[in-house]
């Protein structure tokens, strides 16, 4: 494929750049709008060059309840991810190194729960949460996100653990390592890069989640998804505020997402693609 004419090369480059720009443009426009005034953001003539203002950011960070929702997002995303890792590491260890006839079945069963539509369990969880006073609580959301991401986390950790050579674990066993030693002192440090990127993916997925956040939280336990969706009826008003709040909600995760592209594909395809 090394032979390609000059016009061909230029054409392909132009096309590739155009595609990237078009795909990214709405995000760019969002960020740009966040530095405008509310009036300018909804101007009939789109403004590309203007003197930027931080007013909307100040408004979001100081005047509104941004921090309340942001903290809930951090709490639910990080909390559910930690829970996933704590539950997932031993499970994935068992699947990778203590294989039995049931291992594949268990793994498939876990993955298939991820294919269960959330609406299939929405009503009972809503009712149970109501009785347990978990509605509109960050804790309740964290517990749901854990269930939501656990299959992906177990699956990814399993694929990372499988890359640890069995002989190293046997060497450790002969060296006198117990099961816990094996998990804590050998497998976990060896698979640490994989564990970290798995965790990052789980954070991204929990952070962006909307269905549960909207349905079982309102104010007290609500995340940024709920906060931002409050702008949904801003027909031409507060667009700069909306853009600033959205940018603040999206940017850290966008950057994290850039670094987890591979894990994201690996995790969300459940091994259906090799």
């Amino acid at each position: 494929m090394n032979k390609m004419s000059w016009p061909g090369k230029i054409g392909v480059n132009l096309l590739a750049w155009l595609v990237s720009i078009l795909m990214f443009f709405p995000i760019f426009w969002l960020i740009l709008s966040s530095f405008k005034t509310n009036a300018l953001a909804a101007a009939r003539e789109p403004a590309f060059i203007f003197s930027p203002t931080m007013a909307s950011y100040v408004n979001a960070l100081v005047n509104s309840n941004y921090w309340h929702y942001a903290l809930n997002s951090v709490y639910t995303a990080v909390g559910s991810t930690l829970l996933c890792v704590v539950l997932g590491v031993p499970a994935a260890y068992s699947m990778a190194f203590r294989r039995s006839k049931r291992t594949d079945f268990t793994l498939l069963w876990m993955l298939s729960t991820k294919m269960l539509p959330a609406v299939g369990v929405l009503v009972p969880i809503y009712i149970v949460y109501k009785n347990l006073h978990l509605l509109d609580s960050a804790l309740g959301l964290t517990l749901i996100y854990t269930a939501m991401n656990l299959p992906i986390v177990v699956w990814l950790l399993y694929t990372y653990f499988k890359d640890v050579p069995g002989e190293i674990l046997e060497a450790a066993e002969i060296d006198g390592a117990s099961l816990v030693d094996n998990i804590v002192r050998i497998v976990t440090p060896l698979a640490l890069p994989g564990i970290i990127s798995t965790g990052l993916l789980a954070i991204v997925l929990a952070w962006n989640e909307a269905f549960w956040a909207i349905n079982i939280t309102n104010v007290h336990g609500a995340t940024l998804s709920v906060f931002v969706s409050g702008f949904k009826s801003a027909r031409g008003q507060f667009w700069a505020n909306m853009s600033a709040a959205s940018t603040l909600s999206v940017l850290p995760i966008l950057v994290a997402g850039w670094f987890t592209q591979r894990q994201l594909v690996r995790g969300l395809t459940f091994g259906a693609v090799k």
Partner: peptide, 29 residues
């Protein structure tokens, strides 16, 4: 370029909806 083109996938669906329904598709602004 690929990373930039992949970006929409990492945007929370709620924000995706806001960007398009307001900033992009609003019939007036």
């Amino acid at each position: 370029l690929r990373t930039f083109a992949a970006s929409p996938f990492f945007i929370m669906p709620v924000v995706t909806g806001l960007i398009w329904s307001n900033l992009m598709m609003n019939p007036s602004f």
